[in-house]
Amino acid sequence: MRHTLVAMVEDQPGVLNRIASLFRKRNYNIESLAVGHSETPGISRMTFVVEGDDRVIEQVQKQLYKLVNVIEVWDVTRMPAVVRELALVRVGCPPEQRGEVTELVHLFRARVVDVAPDSLIVEITGTEDKVDALLGLLKPYGIQEVIRTGRVAMVRGNHRSSEPTVSSPQ
């Protein structure tokens, strides 16, 4: 099963390399990884999508914790969470098809962010399913280029985040 993990890590050179090295060394299967600053200066927030059974995911979290630069890890897979991905899509589109493509884009609450004579760039934010669905519909027009950020997640509710899921041993 695919799990969504969130990790708070010290923003220091080489941290991403340490985490990538850990996944490679332990033969964990990482599907996507998104990194950015968090609300705390000096702390970055990473969102991983990892494929594996519960036992593997437990190991992934525990091994992540062993990295000195990793401060907290949560598995938000089974928590109520806002999960999003952003994609930019360059779709082939002669002027006569602009209308119908734009209509599709609006149906998905996506946006056209660039217009060229024979193509458009579409920006969409949503779950992976939603992005996949739009890509499926745009495919017949000719998708020339896609960039997807990978999943980011935040737990719903008024707590900043939930308790780390493996900080206290079971």
Binding site: Y65, S167, S168, P169
Partner: peptide, 11 residues
């Protein structure tokens, strides 16, 4: 100051 280096002990 190493916030990521923790020492765990079970209950």
């Amino acid at each position: 100051h190493l916030p990521g280096l923790r020492l765990d002990f079970s209950d």
